[in-house]
Write a protein that binds this DNA or RNA. Sequence first.
RNA 1: GGCCGGGUGGCGGAAUGGCAGACGCGUCUGACUCAAAAUCAGAUAUCCUUCCGGGUGUGAGGGUUCAAGUCCCUCCCCGGCUACCA
Length: 839
Amino acid sequence: MSTFQRYDPQTIEPKWQHRWESEKTYACTEDPTKPKYYVLEMFPYPSGNLHMGHVRNYAIADVVARFRRMQGYNVLHPIGWDAFGLPAENAAIKHGTHPAKWTYANIDNMRSQLKSLGYSYDWDREIATCHPKYYRWEQEFFLRCLEKGLVYRKKATQNWCPKCNTVLANEQVVDGLCWRCDSHVQQKELTQWFLKITAYAEELLADLKKLEGGWPDRVLSMQRNWIGRSEGAELIFPLEDGKGQIPVFTTRPDTVFGVTFMTLAPEHPLVKELVAGKPNEAEVLRFVERVRNMDRIDRQSDDLEKEGMFTGAYCLHPFTGERVPIWLGNFVLAEYGTGAVMAVPAHDQRDFDFAKKYGMAIRPVVQPEGAALDGATMTEAYDGPGTMINSGEFNGMPNEQAKSAIIEALHKIGRGRKTVNWRLRDWNISRQRYWGAPIPVIYCDKCGMVPVPQKDLPVILPTNVQTYPDGRSPLPDTPEFVECTCPVCGGKARRETDTMDTFVESSWYFARYTAARKEDAPFDPAALAYWLPVDQYIGGVEHAILHLLYARFFTKMLRDFGYFPKNISEPFTNLLTQGMVLKDGSKMSKSKGNTVDPTAMIAKYGADTVRLFCLFTAPPERDFDWSDSGIEGSYRFLSRIWRLYGDVRDIIMPVAACSSTAKDAAVSPLAREIRLKEHATVKKAGEDIGNRYQFNTGIAAVMELVNALYLAKDELSATEQGRKVLSSAISTVLTLMSPVTPHLCEELWADLHRNTEPSMLEQQPWPQWREDALKRDVLTVVIQINGKLRSKIEVAADASKEELEHAALADPTAARHLEGLTVRKVVVIPGRLVNIVAN
RNA sequence: GGCCGGGUGGCGGAAUGGCAGACGCGUCUGACUCAAAAUCAGAUAUCCUUCCGGGUGUGAGGGUUCAAGUCCCUCCCCGGCUACCA
């Protein structure tokens, strides 16, 4: 009887964590002799405490990192803090502290929480984006953008969150609400800084192709939707009075002969001119005002009643010269296309509804096969394919062909061209808040806007300021910050007081990790070339558009600036979007009171159990519901490994995984069975944990092996060879589980080697399964009759097709089912089944 | 409306076109115990049948195939993204 103690994670976990920390076990450097692997999780915002979503995210990443190390990769697995942002300011206001103090205290707390989970980070590379040594490089990138014209200042109507007291990027407005606080977003006219992400629209879209297979389809599809490429043509309709023209964007140039009116957005810049002096001028302007003042959400809602008004003006059809009345329509968006739409009621439902309401002509120009459209009797628009009619020289063409023919004809007369329209807008990065990276720009009355010279970077965010209770930025009222001298003329000047959107910091942090301590440059070219791109990125799907689009944009831009190697166009080769951790079917939140505190769970069950539960309960991409009995089950399994080890501790040997031989296994059928199971488990777990990231099934396979060992251990213990088989299988269990539950496995491995050279499990190679160990002499083959399972037979593994067929037909159970039937066909799948077709 | 996911026991979830429900949770039975807990062993889709066994079953309906949860078509439902996008 062994005196081995019971499983006590509270003593073994801190022990290994201290050892990993003091020995810097997971620090890494570039090593050209080894293949590299860069595993990265989306870094946390230092909100105060880890939540279960973090724990799950980082558990997934840690398994990948540990697995790759055991496979012989040189693994980079860093962590840091996305440390600028509004919650710090709000908390500081609420608790009367300073955002910096609050942030750094949270980082300290969360760092120790991460350490208590045993994640294998290279802590030497830890970064915090609020540190000047980090954001100074961002300011440098900003200056490069200025030089290249990739950042510009523009006065425009912007999304304004009244609660956060700042503007928001389009990507940060969700259903008309602020992504952070759910406030109703207002529209405000402001001068703001924009990053020209649209300059990369084409490449951002095209390169999604490169990510197919590595990224989830739905993320690719979300990005495609967001970028929103739309191919069509810009057509020009000259004004009747000859004083200008109206360009329109259309995806249906083939329907141009069906145009019976023109619809402009009420905000269209030409409206004032068009109605000037017209009889209903005042009425039209009132309409414009009314629509303009409508709430944005109401205006874009589905059930907005289509309303319009005739301006009194006309333009001319580009081909026929026919007079086309110009209307205003409340459903036309000023910010998409040209803000003007050529209306073809016969082939566009919106135009159809509008034409019906206001009595405009409906003229079909695309005839579907086998039907004759009549504008007078149509009940809805026809938007399908067909043959051109009522379209002059284009009549008789298939409409798809007419699209390009018409564009070409218009091009010849200077009235149109092929164009592409994008949904993507430039990225507004100005924020009217304090806790962010200052925009390195100075305004001088004489010289205008002047970039801060590179030598004066960083522009440090002053920390000796008091935040205001209403959240307004204190920067404009901080003379030490604002007042400066103009770098050009030396005169008095003012600093920009807007800070950068925090998504700018997270757009390039993955690259900074490759040389996190470098002081004289943002990156080390050799380190970048070695580590980039990130091989596996892991995080929540809520960043499918925001962060992941911005980071892709930055990668391309920094490549073009010469910071990144030329061949790096995409930052993240593979992306895994992990699901949420729910409680009682809904997202954990303090307000609902359904949170599960990771620290409490670690205290109760240990980090290994928490990690195991997060990985075992569901496949990583799926949401899962936290279950108290589920985590009990995970704890039970670890206790079971511990007990199994304890039971056989005194009779097993410190051997490598998969070390028992066929000769050892020959001692008994059971020994052979166990060795086979051991190798089959290595095959399955390696595939599931290492390649497919289906940790739940990989762990399930190890559970099966453990179950089998429980049943076999007494018999195997009886012989020397049996003990070898058992020892090998136990080592295999510990090795396979070590990426998931490193503390327990390391502890048992150390105990196993108590009388030998000290050896770390994590330095062991991932086990190799052997084909010959998976071979059986006798197999069970299923007999189906007409596709239904009827019997099973044991046959020699090398039985020929003929032998199998013969054996199946001779099987008494099969014979009984075949009574009175004639066998028509026999399908034999060697090693699997025999299907007898009979009637 | 468009695009992308998904629908399998009481629950979480498994199944390269080849034994549906692995593994875990829960439940039940047995062993151990004075007893309970823990642990160990076993059972657990559903219906019919005393047993042997048989029928049915992966959202619905068709199809392909010797064989379909898996492939194809039509449809329903749930989730996500996008949307009067011209």
